[in-house]
Nucleic acid binder design. Structure first.
Lengths: 127, 127
DNA sequence: AAATATATACGAAACAATTCGTAGTGTAAA
DNA sequence: TTTACACTACGAATTGTTTCGTATATATTT
């Protein structure tokens, strides 16, 4: 499956967050973080289109690009890759190390508890 | 702070797991996963040494390389980077998405519960 | 001591990702 | 209708990473 490069991911994030967008719009958003030339952004969107990462509407002079690949799936795939590369494939190791190292709020803890409860119930039902 | 490339990380993992090692040893381990030429591994260790990622003992003909950077710190830094790149800086988002997508065993759940308990206690003591 | 094996050093090729300049085209304003 | 502007297309320079060949030194074996 597909793994976006870092620059491609930045663009995908814009498309995921804001929906189908013009090159100009994507470029403006990118520039709020870091200087990027317009034609650089354009080039990336063209490359991403070739790769099938996006599709575009070329009916009008100004093309509108839309992410083809799904945000959750892509992120899951990236998590898998990361876990494989850095944590010898153990997602739990990664989670534990993250929890041990982050500031976790009360709310976060509640969220964690409820997702754990959900997982537990799934397991019970499975047996 | 420093971020190893993928190839460098592979080597660091060997050094972390097995302790100070010769080029030959590192190369043998790497080759159990994927063909890598001996001089490729050598070159990387030389580069890593220049960058201060490793130090080496050159007393004998065969040099012995040792990781300078710490495993936990490096991994935490890589988690931070990953979370910033992919999850807009929210580690909790990343953890939640991981938990929602992985097979979690009974034991894992217990581990999670205990680390959550630890975090809760830390918070209580802080207030 | 010569031949063989095993090291290191290092330049440079190969490959991948990023960045941008320039050319060309269509649209709208003067 | 000429000029100005904003857009796309695309080649190519730049930068970073990976890979390896070749030269050379140092041991070890015959």
């Amino acid at each position: 499956m597909f793994k976006p490069t870092e620059a491609e991911l930045e663009i995908l994030k814009v498309l995921w967050q804001h929906g189908p967008s013009t090159v100009r719009f994507v470029n403006d958003i990118l520039n709020s973080k870091k200087d990027v030339g317009y034609t650089t952004t354009l080039k990336f969107l063209q490359i991403m289109n070739e790769k099938g990462l996006t599709i575009r509407d070329t009916d009008h002079k100004t093309h509108v690009y839309k992410a083809v690949i799904n945000e959750a799936d892509t992120k899951n795939r990236m998590i898998d890759d990361f876990v494989n590369n850095v944590f010898h494939g153990s997602a739990m190791n990664m989670v534990m190390q993250t929890l041990g190292n982050q500031k976790i709020s009360h709310e976060d803890i509640n969220d964690l508890k409820s997702i754990i409860a959900i997982i537990e119930n799934k397991n019970i039902n499975k047996d």
